[in-house]
Simulated scan of single mutants.
Amino acid sequence: MYIFIISAEVLFWVFVVAGLIARYMYDLKKLGGLLLLCTPVIDILLLIAVFITVSSGMEITTATGLAACYLGITVAFGHRLIKWADVRFSYWFGKGPKPQRKYGAAHAKEERTTWLLHLLGWAIGNVLLLAIIVYVGDLQRTASLEGLMKTWAVVLAIDFIVSFSYTLAPKKNKA
């Protein structure tokens, strides 16, 4: 399952970069858009791999759970990651405006928004994890998934503290 997760991440970025290269270096906007639209297909293939693993009676490991987490995060952050890369490619190859760093209240708002997306990804991932646990119906077989849910909740709480700390102590421009 780890290979599926790593392959999904690699393929996600391959399609993103290929789409942006087509769009900005070769001025093939439709092809670039099509390649970018292929990124959700990767998530569907990973979801199929998880379903096959779960339904075939294979061992359910932390990797199975990480696949569910990956799906939650890509659904929550996928569009934002593509937009982030698009802005940079536009600047580097398409004569777009230089990406601006955010400071102060704008940066604090960005951090809070990012945490809310993390919360969304956590919720989606945990729904998938719970669906697997209910579908399997064997708590001993799915114990690693429950441990993963607890660990992710701690990570989410730490991210909350860090993200919202910028509201109290905004990031300052060093210039």
Rank of each mutant, 00 (worst) to 15 (best):
M1N: 04
Y2L: 08
F4Y: 12
I6F: 11
I6E: 05
I6H: 02
S7M: 09
S7K: 09
E9Y: 02
E9A: 12
V10R: 03
L11F: 15
W13K: 07
V14R: 06
F15T: 10
A18M: 14
A18K: 10
A18G: 14
G19L: 09
G19C: 10
L20H: 08
I21L: 12
I21W: 10
R23K: 14
Y24C: 02
Y24T: 08
Y26G: 00
Y26L: 12
L28S: 11
L28Q: 12
K29F: 02
G32C: 05
L35M: 15
L36F: 04
L36D: 00
C38G: 13
C38I: 13
T39H: 00
T39C: 02
P40H: 06
V41P: 02
L45T: 13
I48E: 06
I48A: 11
I48K: 12
V50D: 03
V50K: 01
V50H: 02
I52R: 14
T53S: 07
S55W: 07
S55F: 11
S56W: 06
G57K: 14
I60H: 01
T61I: 00
A67M: 12
A67T: 13
A68H: 02
G72D: 05
G72W: 04
G72K: 06
I73F: 05
I73H: 05
T74C: 01
A76P: 04
F77N: 04
R80F: 03
V87M: 10
V87I: 15
F89S: 00
F89I: 07
S90N: 13
Y91R: 10
P99H: 09
Q100C: 01
Q100P: 01
R101M: 13
R101K: 15
K102C: 02
Y103D: 05
Y103L: 07
A106M: 07
H107T: 07
K109V: 11
T113L: 14
W115N: 08
W115L: 13
L117I: 05
H118I: 00
W122N: 00
W122Y: 12
A123Q: 08
I124A: 00
G125M: 03
N126T: 12
N126W: 04
N126Q: 08
V127A: 08
A131D: 08
I132M: 01
I133T: 05
Y135E: 13
Y135K: 15
Y135L: 14
Y135P: 02
Y135R: 15
Q140E: 14
R141L: 01
L145Y: 00
E146D: 03
G147P: 08
G147L: 06
G147N: 11
L148V: 04
L148H: 03
L148S: 05
M149C: 00
K150E: 03
K150T: 08
W152H: 09
A153V: 13
L156H: 13
I158L: 15
I158A: 14
D159M: 10
D159I: 05
F160Y: 14
I161H: 09
I161C: 10
S163L: 07
S163E: 08
S165R: 09
Y166L: 03
T167D: 07
A169C: 03
P170T: 13
K171W: 07
K172G: 01
K174M: 04
